[in-house]
Nucleic acid binder design. Structure first.
Lengths: 219, 219
DNA sequence: CAAGTATTCAATAAATATATTGAATACTTG
DNA sequence: CAAGTATTCAATATATTTATTGAATACTTG
């Protein structure tokens, strides 16, 4: 193989993988799958996609070694191919949110709207863990919590939150988290709880970011 | 802004940046620019692109905060926007080469063809630096060497290599490097020098990878 | 095995990305 | 300021990507 041929082949292969990532529907699917495996139906429920369209996007991701599938009964369950991809994906998001002014602006506007500007970072959270006055609240669906959660967190899915208000003490500082920086469940929880007079902030990141950080530490 | 609107805006923005990266011509431009700033003409010379086409691709990269430009006389010089992008780019390549079977195969075939399989890694290089019997050889064009190079390296651009053969001792172990894993200059140098009876291997990575590693260390 | 459900496939139209061509612009230098 | 050079712009044809639709397949369960 000549030099140019080789280069072209490598860049085309690389571009092909990046093309698979460069679509908003597929990025949302990736976020879903970083919370654990999901069936096609599961993905359709929390996106605006039709079943056929979701299936097509899943094929694209699968053909590019980003996700893998497993069949059980009638269902096909998809999941991220490995944690290395998760780390790469978070690196991309971190760069984009930090360097692309457009994205930074959208993010800040959202946070302002939700008074979520004084969010807690993962590093800050480290210093708070173990403190009796802090309650770490996971507001994702139960199945996602069961697949994995931040050590010490308590699971109260968003749709059950109202019913569990009585369980919280107004003395405690509540830190709510969900799927990641683009997930709005934690914002909703903060809004609801602060209206009721609780001390509450959101975590800037979500479960997958915490997980990748743990993997880094234990490497 | 509603939750779905926010999510869509973020994923679309992210997808837009990734679209800018998902084209082989633009990836090659990025590799060129990780060796230092280049004019449009400079880029055209080492790619298969027409001037107008290269210019268009450069606009796309610029509009997505991946590269920046500076004007001097008639020339416009482009360069990567910052080292954070360089680190992200290398992370993408590392994932792709390690996880995408197709790319791994192409890479291995190239290395076999060039008997470059026993390449030296950056980590190995660390243990060799300072050894009097090792000669670290930078075969990139002089201007790229001058912009930055691995500490202790000697610059002999590929096209001058033949004329400098007499400078090398056959007792020394020569390590040749160039722009990065997809660059074939080092492969050519290894081929040429080993045919003449020198002990020579290539560095698996190139100057930008060394640079990012240094930045990591000094962080 | 019939009925129901989950997923994929195939065909299509619309939207977007790409390379090419031939100007137009901007700048330098004699 | 005229001639030359580097870069960008605008228009176009082609290729690729995308969402939609309706059907086909695969599997489960009664």
């Amino acid at each position: 193989m000549e030099g140019r041929e080789f280069k072209d082949a490598m860049y085309e292969g690389l571009a092909k993988m990046l093309k698979a990532l460069s679509n908003s529907a597929r990025l949302e699917i990736i976020e879903m799958l970083s919370q654990g495996e999901k069936s096609v139906e599961g993905i359709v429920q929390s996106t605006n996609l039709s079943v056929a369209n979701a299936s097509q996007h899943l094929q694209v991701l699968k053909n590019n070694n980003i996700i893998k599938s497993r069949k059980e009964k009638q269902y096909v369950f998809y999941s991220l191919v490995n944690d290395d991809f998760l780390a790469l994906y978070q690196h991309i998001i971190k760069y984009a949110v930090g360097e692309i002014a457009e994205l930074e602006k959208i993010m800040n506007r959202q946070r302002e709207d939700n008074k979520a500007l004084n969010a807690v970072s993962l590093d800050e959270l480290d210093t708070m863990i173990g403190d009796d006055h802090v309650l770490l609240l996971d507001v994702r669906p139960k199945t996602e919590f069961e697949f994995g959660h931040i050590t010490g967190a308590v699971s109260i899915p968003m749709n059950e939150l109202m019913a569990h208000l009585k369980d919280f003490s107004k003395d405690k500082e509540i830190i709510a988290y969900c799927r990641g920086p683009f997930c709005v469940l934690a914002d909703e929880a903060v809004k609801m709880l602060s209206e009721k007079g609780y001390k509450v902030r959101r975590l800037n990141e979500g479960y997958p970011e915490w997980k990748v950080k743990q993997l880094e530490i234990n490497k």
